[in-house]
Design a protein around this nucleic acid. Sequence first.
DNA 1: ATCGGCAATATTGTCAACAATAATTACAAA
DNA 2: TTTGTAATTATTGTTGACAATATTGCCGAT
Lengths: 225, 225
Amino acid sequence: MSESSAKNSTTLATKITESIRTAIVSGDIAPGAKLSEAQLAMQFNSSRGPVREAIRRLEVERLVRHVPHEGARVITLERNEIVAIYQVRESLEGMAASLAAQHMSDEDIVALRQLWEQHRAHQHQTGEYMQADGDFDFHYRIIQGSRNPYLIRQLCDDLYQLLRMFRYRSSRFISRSAVALTEHEHIVYAIEQRDSQLAELVMRRHISRAARDIAQAMQTEETKL
Amino acid sequence: MSESSAKNSTTLATKITESIRTAIVSGDIAPGAKLSEAQLAMQFNSSRGPVREAIRRLEVERLVRHVPHEGARVITLERNEIVAIYQVRESLEGMAASLAAQHMSDEDIVALRQLWEQHRAHQHQTGEYMQADGDFDFHYRIIQGSRNPYLIRQLCDDLYQLLRMFRYRSSRFISRSAVALTEHEHIVYAIEQRDSQLAELVMRRHISRAARDIAQAMQTEETKL
DNA sequence: ATCGGCAATATTGTCAACAATAATTACAAA
DNA sequence: TTTGTAATTATTGTTGACAATATTGCCGAT
């Protein structure tokens, strides 16, 4: 487990929170793993206080499940929970796309198009899957474009944490980068046209298909065991 | 400020969290008010530790804004933030209604109808506005009926806290109980018919109208000052 | 050999003191 | 009077010790 990524925030508790969060999301701390206060405190050269604060925060963020007097464990995402999350994501991010088509500045739309061009070029050259990071970047920009602060927080701070955590583990399945690239283009197009209805629909389908692929992959994964 | 509503949870920090949360949501602690650790600790006959934990949790729940070394204050909801929240609520709860129409058990639907009958009877007798609590109860049942655990948490644990906090302050405006009663009936009907599309649409309109009324009321309220 | 209860151990919850940072006040100079 | 600065005060951040609870291991009974 790497506690390297500790940004120099103002307070120790914040740094520890971020370190543990990235460790969970990146899979360095496995789902279901126990978070021992004493152990973590030792690891970060601190006392248990700041570690406790970090765990409490991550508990509210739903990355950690805590039961009194027993301790905290990293959550494990079951199949039905993944499905539930994707269902919400479809609704929320569809709305984000719709709002983005209405509210994004012309410059931001140009930048979005350029980002997509980069992704295409990258895929053309390397023939590689789209990087998860690139995909997230694309979606983040559209969410930001919604200009709805509450929606932005819900998606970026909350839902996407869970998504990242899950994606890291299951990146082996996801080989739909070619399809995704095409779908992204359609989204960019709809936003360029300022067609909020189309943007919403295309985004919803994009996410819906991803969800279907993942659910299917998990299904076969489960039957294999 | 009443710290009376302390349920006997297993841990002190939890009790304090709940007490402060209800105090904020009910308006006993005013928006923008400072949350002093020492003062709260005294108030709850505890040390600062549990109070700090409570504040950290409420911070992640977005009921409190915290800046390092300065302290925590209760958030203040601006007009545009209310609009943003209602926009998200419309999308999420529309989805909840759709899912409820698909997944609610027949018994639960009967119970929902009965609840509505009660509301109607109550209004008939007293001619009163619908109680905010009754309204929340109605919506909660439908959200639960969605059977989507992530959606349920997002709405009940997160969004509705903010809604409650705001509603308490502004209950003076909201006199649309007669309209709401009718709209609720339409929602119940759509769910009884298992018409998920209709349920979603009617719910969205219900919330959209409420949002419009509130935005309008805030507008006039602002110009008055 | 397995199961249930008791002691030992480990872990979490709470507390009070200390350190570090921000807010306030007092004071002096312009 | 006003303004900038330094000292004071108050508040938050962190720590280690102690209390309360859960887990583990041991022992005896069936």
